[in-house]
Amino acid sequence: MEFDKDSLLKLGKLSKIKIDENKLSSLSSDLGSILKFIDRLQSIETDNVDPTSNSLDQSLVMRDDIALDENSAAEILENAPEKELDFFSVPKVIE
């Protein structure tokens, strides 16, 4: 089973992964194979089943509203591949 190539390119756009022309074919056959595999679930009867998104049976623990000053700008920017002054910098964005 092949995964439709246009859909694959669209997925690449959505997930911001450039898909090389020369990998398109192998990738679409890989994804096709995975898709075929997960399609197995379609035959399972789940009409009255609630979905589980986390197995931990606990309600959300909340924290108190206390502000802590833990990180300096320098620390936050330490690993940034590019920065200007105390800002992260990216190629110019036109809104």
């Binding site: 802590l68 000053d69 833990e70 990180n71 700008a73 936050i76 105390d86 800002f87």
Partner: peptide, 16 residues
Amino acid sequence: SSSTDFGSGPNSQVSL
């Protein structure tokens, strides 16, 4: 837990 007031410089009220 980082503070919500931004008196100080850029990226100074930013937690991990």
